Simulated scan of single mutants.
Amino acid sequence: MSMPFLKTIPFAVMNRSPLRIFAVFLLALALTACATVAPMHPSPSPVLPTAERNQVISSLKYWRASGEAALSTPKHHENFGFRWEQSPQLQALSIYDPLGRTVARITVDASGAHLETITGEHRQARNLSTLLNMVLHVELPAAELPDWMLGLPGNNSTISDNASGLPEMLRSGPWQVHYLRYAPVGGLTMPQLLQANGPDGIALRMAITRWQMGQSDPS
């Protein structure tokens, strides 16, 4: 996919059993510390029921996800690396070229959304979506991306589960998100490979190669 913006850059609970409640408590407690795990094949161990999994993941205040993405339309295709950082004070998305250079970084805080590019260009907007569309030149539901990566249903979305009770498909408006692979991370089973298909033939495929759950020092 051709990205004009990037071309300006040098490649650019209360009815539950006490045992289950205790298990959820222990899992939530474990996630208060940073858990960094390289993606592996899904563990054969039983997973939490969907409602309890969602409860634990929704309670996380700090997490990071990084990996590779492919964005395509009927006419264009582009690959890039990404890193998503989430905390109560800051939301940040970094986009990398194949050489690992940060070609764009979008941060969202109390003052709004801010974009900085490898060329030193600065832009500001009211929200993340505006700046992400400016970078990728494709309209993506940026506000929903964190929930998609976590495998959580948003306010206007529905989820169908697979035989293990994990999200298999998420539907949100014209978008369908297919969860193709999972990996164990800090006691949870997290999405590792997903594909979002949207209107006008837009497709976004994300391979999450690293999860960090909980607060940690910058790396």
Rank of each mutant, 00 (worst) to 15 (best):
1 M>F: 10
2 S>V: 08
3 M>E: 10
4 P>V: 10
7 K>P: 02
7 K>V: 05
7 K>I: 00
10 P>R: 00
10 P>H: 04
10 P>V: 03
13 V>Q: 13
16 R>N: 06
16 R>K: 02
17 S>W: 02
20 R>I: 12
22 F>M: 09
24 V>C: 06
26 L>N: 10
27 L>M: 07
29 L>Y: 05
31 L>G: 06
31 L>D: 01
32 T>W: 03
32 T>M: 04
33 A>V: 14
35 A>S: 14
35 A>D: 11
37 V>A: 06
38 A>G: 03
42 P>F: 03
44 P>Q: 11
44 P>R: 12
47 V>W: 15
48 L>F: 13
49 P>L: 00
50 T>A: 06
55 Q>F: 04
60 L>Q: 07
62 Y>C: 00
74 P>Y: 11
76 H>S: 14
78 E>K: 00
84 W>E: 07
88 P>T: 04
90 L>S: 12
94 S>A: 12
94 S>G: 07
95 I>K: 02
98 P>R: 03
99 L>P: 01
110 A>S: 14
116 E>G: 14
122 H>F: 04
123 R>W: 12
123 R>M: 11
124 Q>P: 02
124 Q>C: 04
126 R>G: 12
126 R>W: 08
127 N>G: 02
127 N>R: 03
129 S>E: 14
131 L>D: 10
133 N>C: 14
137 H>N: 15
137 H>V: 15
137 H>Y: 12
139 E>R: 08
140 L>V: 11
140 L>Q: 02
140 L>A: 03
140 L>E: 04
141 P>N: 12
143 A>C: 13
145 L>R: 09
153 P>G: 12
154 G>V: 00
156 N>D: 15
158 T>C: 12
158 T>L: 14
159 I>D: 14
159 I>W: 10
160 S>N: 13
163 A>C: 07
164 S>W: 06
166 L>T: 09
167 P>N: 08
168 E>R: 02
168 E>C: 05
168 E>F: 05
171 R>S: 07
178 H>T: 11
180 L>W: 05
180 L>F: 01
182 Y>A: 05
183 A>Q: 10
184 P>T: 00
185 V>A: 07
186 G>V: 12
186 G>M: 06
187 G>F: 06
190 M>G: 13
191 P>R: 00
192 Q>Y: 03
198 G>C: 05
199 P>L: 06
202 I>R: 06
202 I>Q: 04
203 A>S: 13
206 M>E: 11
208 I>C: 13
209 T>F: 03
210 R>H: 09
211 W>E: 15
215 Q>D: 10
216 S>Y: 07
217 D>I: 01
217 D>M: 08
218 P>I: 00
